[in-house]
Write a protein that binds this DNA or RNA. Structure first.
Length: 273
DNA sequence: GAGGATCGAAGGGGACACGC
DNA sequence: GCGTGTCCCCTTCGATCCTC
């Protein structure tokens, strides 16, 4: 295992890294944490068989770990079925330095289970969007994760407010762009909190700021883990008098494909010039 | 209900071939 | 020599079934 690399060593390794190596590091920087399974789905999907891709991925991750560009975190997130506990990876000290050119770099930390679960759920949504795009001849033209997706605006009272989507995405085909703000709900917050977030979306929509840049306001997709939770949120939105009824779509995680490919646009799809 | 047996999915390692 | 692709086999571990 290597220790922290010096500048010359960093340059040497940067030149030796393949495009895919750097893409894996970039994905880890973007999402902070990814399971091995998500890395396979993002970067090793073109192999003859799924196990071949998994094996190739495993070797690449081991190599990157030896160079201290990535690290395995101790905590594992369980899935369904035996052996499905997936290893969770994050950038290590040399990975940060390679990508950011900074002098110090930083080592990874062991996150709380709640934080990790939410971060991985957001990553899972992004990976799923990539797969939907591949399957439907679409392009995930633009994607912003958490902080990069946040929007600052001035509220009606003149106060500075932040809209904080978990993910902002643009799916494109030859003619149209579909814009989405996506919120990942793991059932850890109250319905009141969720409706509060919806109200922030409504306030932001009324500023016209997003429409001025892209002509349309993105549809807001709430992804929930259970049908019960989806129904509760849907009912709460329907009973609200202050929220635009067609602005919000609520669905379970496993419905995202149908929602993304079938959903009619809010104000008409944005046609590119 | 508790504990053991079995099943199945996924991870991991060895080996070989191939290309650069 | 090194990285990569593939196949094969073993191990691990949660879910499920079965027996008591």
């Amino acid at each position: 295992m290597l220790n922290r690399l010096g500048h010359r060593q960093l340059d040497h390794f940067r030149m030796r890294f393949s495009t895919r190596d750097l893409a894996i590091l970039a994905s880890l920087r973007e999402h902070r944490f990814l399971t091995a399974q998500q890395i396979i789905r993002l970067h090793f999907y073109g192999h003859a068989t799924q196990p071949a891709g998994a094996r190739a991925c495993s070797r690449v991750l081991e190599r990157l770990q030896r160079l201290r560009t990535i690290a395995r975190i101790q905590r594992r997130i369980g899935g369904t079925g035996g052996g499905s506990t997936s290893q969770v990876w994050t950038l290590d000290i040399n990975g940060h330095r390679l990508l950011t050119q900074n002098k110090t770099g930083r080592s990874h930390f062991d996150p709380s289970l709640t934080f990790l679960a939410h971060t991985l759920a957001v990553a899972e949504t992004r990976v799923t969007l990539e797969e939907i795009a591949r399957r439907n001849s679409l392009r995930l033209a633009h994607v912003e994760i958490e902080q990069t997706a946040w929007r600052q605006f001035i509220g009606t009272g003149g106060q500075s407010l932040w809209l904080k989507p978990d993910l902002a995405a643009v799916l494109s085909d030859d003619e149209f762009d579909d814009r989405w703000f996506i919120e990942v709900d793991l059932g850890t917050e109250s319905l009141k909190t969720l409706l509060g977030k919806c109200a922030v979306y409504e306030s932001y929509r009324k500023t016209g700021k997003e429409q001025a840049s892209h002509e349309v306001f993105p549809r807001v997709l709430w992804l929930t883990t259970t049908q019960r939770r989806a129904d509760q949120l849907r009912n709460a939105l329907a009973n609200s008098r202050s929220l635009h009824p067609r602005l919000f779509t609520v669905a379970r995680f496993d419905e995202i494909g149908a929602i993304i490919t079938d959903q009619p646009p809010l104000n008409g799809k944005e046609e590119r010039a």
